[in-house]
Design a protein around this nucleic acid. Structure first.
Lengths: 124, 124
DNA sequence: ATATTAATACATTGAATAGTGTATTTCAAG
DNA sequence: CTTGAAATACACTATTCAATGTATTAATAT
């Protein structure tokens, strides 16, 4: 529950080349992007990530308790997130503490949360 | 292939309440957000959306040709996108032209593309 | 009316994936 | 060394979902 973040890094994104003039997405580019969105397209992972944003770092059991899910499920998803380079870990005795290492994710999560609220308001 | 967009609307997003202090995501909030990301977590839909950003509007057959996919597949995904309120359509004779009606999607697509490039550079 | 093209509806199939249960690894305490 | 807790590895199941094939609807032209 400690709140020690490494600074949210307000704009981790480059100056922006205009999207409308980019070449049509290649299969590979689309693939990369899909991988990112897929990682975020899961409600367990989203809640885990948000918990990490709030707490700074957490171990599996803490998260398991907080989200009321089995440790295996949490561990599975953490592994996925780690494979994507989104979270990192540090061991302390029996516990392994995870933290977000990719600041972009925080950004896009924030952005997406905002958008989803608006989108919901508009589309229904 | 005409390029007539209704202005990308540079910031469709509100002033930003700080993410780290928000309450833990409820299952419903997470669900909304997941729905958004799921919609974007598909390479066909991403390429379709980008094509739409570039062209302004396209009909199924045009898109089918451009992306080298069967019309049914394109139509399927357009239906999904329409159900989510992301695209809208307009009929002109035999052809039905689709366009993006949710400016947020352009934003997050742009953002995501940028991030995925950086993330790729970092994580591998 | 008939033929033709565009798009969609619907059922089916195959692939990806999240959660579970079981077993195993890793560390700390006694 | 043994015990117990935390985390992971692995196999398995159920579900979700994209693409396909077939059939149908909608509009235009002859």
């Amino acid at each position: 529950m400690n709140s020690r973040e490494p600074e949210p890094s307000l704009n981790a994104c480059l100056p922006k080349p205009p999207l409308g003039e980019r070449e049509l997405l290649t299969a590979m580019q689309a693939g990369e992007l899909v991988a990112l969105f897929k990682t975020l397209a899961n409600d367990t992972r989203l809640r885990m990530l948000h918990a990490l944003v709030r707490a700074g770092e957490m171990c599996v059991s803490e998260m398991s308790d907080l989200l009321a899910m089995k440790p295996q499920a949490i561990s599975n998803q953490l592994t996925r997130l780690a494979d994507r380079g989104i979270v990192g870990s540090r061991r302390n005795g029996n516990n392994i503490y995870y933290r977000i290492v990719d600041p972009c994710v925080i950004e896009i999560l924030d952005h997406g949360l905002c958008l989803s609220e608006e989108a919901k308001a508009r589309s229904k």
